[in-house]
């Protein structure tokens, strides 16, 4: 992808750093932890994405079949990516990821399982990921979102993302976590 992407001048944050615990609006005790690389975590994510409602797919992800889910997860759970998972006991309720794009940019995506949506989990999940990323020295994060996906767009705006590209099907938004060197 192009490296001449625009970013806000001002730094957003600080954001909460995982692990964190909170009670969601449905009275469930949710814990958000960074992905630690275990097989149990991977399998929980495979289960979450296998149950994912196709209507909540964005630009082709998550993929629809288990084999494709596994291939996709393999790439975004690799060591150069940062991942956080929201847990309701042993169930993965949400997942957010930062994938490197060239030198110092990272692409962000966030998914919350349908049963756990509209309970405040997404806000904690994205803030935890940004806190986790900032702690690892990540400076610049971008994402794309379908322009009719108003709940997602307002979540991104709330945490500090600004619209940086609006010329195609999707909106491009970006946030700055640290000043440039």
């Amino acid at each position: 992808m192009k490296s001449d992407r625009r970013y806000p001048d001002s730094v957003s944050g600080p954001f909460e750093v995982p692990p964190i615990e909170f009670v969601d609006r449905e009275d469930r005790e949710i814990e958000i932890r960074p992905y630690a690389g275990s097989e149990a975590e991977q399998e929980a994510l495979v289960e979450m994405y296998s149950a994912f409602d196709p209507s909540d797919r964005a630009q082709g992800i998550p993929p629809g079949q288990e084999s494709r889910i596994r291939t996709w997860l393999e790439s975004i759970l690799s060591e150069d990516c940062l991942n956080v998972i929201a847990w309701d006991d042993g169930t993965a309720a949400g997942h957010s990821t930062l994938v490197p794009d060239g030198e110092e940019d990272y692409e962000l995506a966030i998914f919350v399982l349908q049963d756990f949506q509209e309970a405040g989990i997404g806000t904690h999940l994205i803030e935890s990921l940004l806190g986790h990323g900032a702690e690892h020295g990540i400076k610049k994060v971008w994402l794309t979102v379908e322009r009719w996906n108003h709940p997602a767009v307002s979540l991104y705006k709330k945490v500090g993302f600004e619209t940086t590209g609006a010329e195609s099907f999707e909106l491009e938004m970006a946030i700055r976590l640290h000043e440039d060197d």
Partner: peptide
């Protein structure tokens, strides 16, 4: 094209 994340975006020709 596919982003690092695996998201597909249509270029302006396709759109």
């Amino acid at each position: 094209t596919t982003s690092p994340m695996g998201k597909i975006s249509l270029n302006q020709i396709a759109e």
